[in-house]
Design a protein around this nucleic acid. Structure first.
Lengths: 341, 341
DNA sequence: ATTTTAATTGCAAGCCTTTACATTATGTTT
DNA sequence: AAACATAATGTAAAGGCTTGCAATTAAAAT
């Protein structure tokens, strides 16, 4: 015979105080005399009381829940960023709601609405680019958010991230300084993906410095997976002449490219150099170890949490923060066998 | 001048119907005449209305939110299981709350209580072992849950997973069939971690078949990280004589062991074989590719979602489900150079 | 001992939806 | 055209907690 779950009234009755006092014991323990508090808390434990979330949310107008919408947890870079984010939230008493989009912008829109409807007090988003209607919706609902994974000086909304364009440009310059001129890129579709697009622009920027034109960069568009990275690499290597350096939009693609190279008997970095982006564990463990751009996922997650908490508590944020994402030189990048132009 | 976010009353007033009708438009559209529905929906869009979650939760007594408590998202195996879980939830209109524990059982307890307090209708848990008080709490709160990552015929609670003991025993038998007798294990602390403990028991089971005693298996306890795997491996290889096969509690440790072996100039699998558990991407990408046990994370996540949804909707579950976790033979395991006893 | 100040506690309104039940409109059958 | 069945809509209560304000009690000051 299961009697219904205990309420604040049950606790109040059993401990001989008012519901207000019980509520304060739970939310502002130092406003209650120690003796009272102890009594109440023991009753709470005794009854196995847990506050009713709906009632609490309704009365206090917040849920202490923050939503994160990411492309996928299958890519460790997001999973790890999220882990850091949630740990920081935990420390401040917030809980994390998670949704993933599979890199689909319409799914992202659904998920944003879903998390808001689910009571998210604030939102963690990845990248700036999304339909204006979504930003309007967030404003109408008065939901603070922070954009991560991208720092773009042209954007004004609260964000924390690194400059995708600048970082990729820096990497591309290193590649060209080593003598590479026949370049290629394996990238995700850049439509509705500002990170991928900025990375592409970064390569173009660097190419311009070396007298190359955007058209000199063959590109294979594909979605992020090891398998697709391998396929795309094979495709690129069939060109005549083949590229001497292949940029990859992220480490997952790059690891696929590495695998394909091994399978094809193409020496890396002897015959072709390969670079990634993210610096997940895969990059260090891959053979040869992958030259890539290290994304400061942990700090990004942590600071994103702080920004949101501040936004919720004070209603202000100082300014968008740019983090450094530095290049990790490893074994998959070296000078081409015989410099070509 | 920000007027407060619109409520059901605003929508009702503006569309000239009662709140009940608006509510039905949102929740049971086919109970409302098409004309009315269209009118109401346009007002909803117009006002940017989104139902207040707390009020909804309170009135309907559910949140359509399911909580998952995992050790860490930094290990891809959990992140991926979670991704599958959340996708399945999404398809049924549920949202995912996530908390991680860092493998700390007291943190896990906190997180379980926190997610329940945050309105989780049901819970996704990993492993059976936790303080009895927690199970009592869940019962008192009438929160259904499913235990994943472990199938143990002795346990009666709803669960979906694989038999950690049996799987590890199978792997250990393969290792011994190849001739290995000097074994060692790098494992997480088995206290409050039934998966790790069962895996250890599995090795013991297999050893018994080959006339070895538990004492014949040196163990290094360490927490899961590549770095720790490397350190533990170095420690084990200092024994005289060194082991010819090193089991690792998961792939992350195993990859660390592989790295240490390479750094020490120890040939794998020539001088020593190394095995993992989980079969995350790391295992395939590592060099040499890692022999490991493939954990059916995707199916586990998906089915866990189905079990919970059914538990919520019908209040019943058929029976715990055992999934297969098969061995993936790759390059890090081979017969020892000269069979030893 | 009396007054003043501060710390505790209690009262009760209000938060916004859902939903059982009642009512009205619409359609069908005879 | 009346009687009945069904669909659509409205009414209003309930749900459990927080919090501004008021009342009470304890501590400090005189």
């Amino acid at each position: 015979m299961l009697r219904s779950t205990p309420t604040l009234y049950d606790v109040a009755a059993k401990s001989g105080v008012s519901t207000a006092t019980v509520s304060r014991c739970l939310n502002f323990p130092d406003q209650v005399a120690e003796k009272t508090r102890k009594k109440v808390m023991s009753v709470v434990a005794d009854l196995g009381y847990s506050p009713n979330f709906g009632a609490r949310a309704m009365a206090s107008k917040r849920t202490n829940t923050i939503g994160a919408i990411i492309p996928t947890m299958e890519n460790a870079i997001f999973a790890r960023g999220l882990e850091a984010f949630q740990q920081e939230l935990l420390a401040s008493g917030f809980t994390l709601l998670v949704a993933s989009t599979g890199y689909e912008s319409n799914v992202e829109e659904e998920q944003i609405r879903a998390l808001v409807a689910r009571g998210a007090d604030a939102l963690f988003l990845i990248g700036h680019e999304r339909a204006p209607a979504i930003y309007k919706f967030l404003e109408a609902q008065d939901i603070p958010f922070v954009v991560t994974w991208a720092f773009d000086p042209r954007e004004t909304r609260p964000s924390i991230g690194f400059n995708n364009r600048k970082c990729m440009a820096a990497l591309a310059r290193r590649v060209m300084e080593l003598g590479h001129r026949r370049l290629a890129l394996i990238s995700a579709d850049v439509t509705m993906n500002d990170r991928a697009r900025e990375r592409l622009h970064g390569i173009h920027d660097a190419m311009a410095d070396f007298g190359l034109k955007p058209g000199d960069l063959p590109i294979v568009d594909t979605s992020y997976s090891i398998e697709n990275g391998a396929t795309a690499f094979r495709q690129l290597m069939q060109r005549a002449p083949p590229p001497t350096a292949v940029f990859c939009g992220n480490d997952v693609l790059a690891v696929g490219a590495l695998r394909a190279a091994r399978e094809m008997g193409v020496d890396v970095p002897g015959a072709v150099s390969i670079t990634g982006f993210d610096d997940i564990e895969l990059a260090q463990v891959a053979y040869p170890a992958l030259t890539t751009v290290h994304v400061p996922h942990r700090e990004m997650g942590r600071m994103a949490a702080r920004i949101l908490i501040r936004l919720l508590q004070k209603g202000t944020f100082d300014q968008s923060i740019e983090l450094k994402a530095d290049i990790r030189m490893r074994d998959s990048l070296a000078a081409p066998a015989s410099p070509t132009s």
